[in-house]
């Protein structure tokens, strides 16, 4: 987390140079807020896919991400970060959107695994979404199938850096401003009911 922990590559530097203007325009309070939110990240406990198997090692003694200020928390209302760990099936996507909308701002999303980026191994599956960023705002992608715990930690560190330096436009701002775009995508895929419907009446589903 300290300087030198992550070696910036040239790409990252050029990205920062582009957003130099944003960085300098923030007020003192904004700076302080960003510093605080980068130092305390509460991750909502929702293992959406198979990437969830690498979360216990990350949160326990071997990799111990708590040293970076990242802690698990049970409810979305107290959480800052959601890790979408791998493929999202259509049924899960409804819950993910609901969880995401319940989280209070500032909130960030880390998408874990190749399948959130472009379908990955399940690119021809009828039940998994291919691009997560079409449906909710995503801040950080960690590629791999499955990504190692070190990769996940690096994703966290990069996210913290960018929050602290205010170098990226957070996904939740995009989600709020372009809500119509996201909603159109959600409705195109999931129909009008983008939130889960729990109903007892399953009549009419019987094909025989």
């Amino acid at each position: 987390m300290q300087k030198g922990f992550v070696a910036y590559n040239n790409e990252q530097k050029s990205l920062e140079a582009e957003t130099e203007g944003i960085k300098n325009s923030q007020t003192l309070i904004q700076k302080a807020m960003n510093w605080f939110s980068a130092r305390s990240m509460f991750v909502v406990a929702y293992g959406t896919g198979c990437g969830a198997i690498e979360m216990p090692p990350v949160f326990t003694s071997r990799y111990d991400i708590e040293r970076l200020g990242v802690v698990g928390v049970a409810t979305p209302r107290q959480a800052d970060i959601m890790i979408v760990s791998g493929y999202c099936s259509l049924k899960t996507l409804r819950r993910v959107i609901r969880t995401y909308e319940q989280m209070s701002e500032p909130k960030y999303v880390i998408a874990l695994g190749s399948c959130t980026i472009n379908g990955g191994m399940y690119w021809d599956s009828y039940n998994t979404i291919k691009k997560l960023e079409e449906y909710i705002g995503v801040d950080m992608y960690v590629a791999g199938c499955m990504p190692r715990p070190e990769a996940l930690i690096e994703g966290f560190v990069k996210l913290q850096e960018s929050i602290r330096n205010n170098t990226i436009q957070p996904g939740y701002v995009k989600y709020r401003e372009d809500y119509a775009y996201y909603q159109a995508n959600q409705e195109k895929l999931l129909g009008k009911e983008t939130q889960p419907v729990y109903e007892e009446d399953y009549a009419g589903m019987n094909l025989s």
Binding site: Y87, S89, K91, N127
Partner: peptide, 23 residues
Amino acid sequence: VGYLHRGFEKLVERRTVIQAFTI
């Protein structure tokens, strides 16, 4: 259940034996 359904059995039908082995 159904939150993790990926349709493996369908995907396996579309792949050759050796491709199916990886999933």
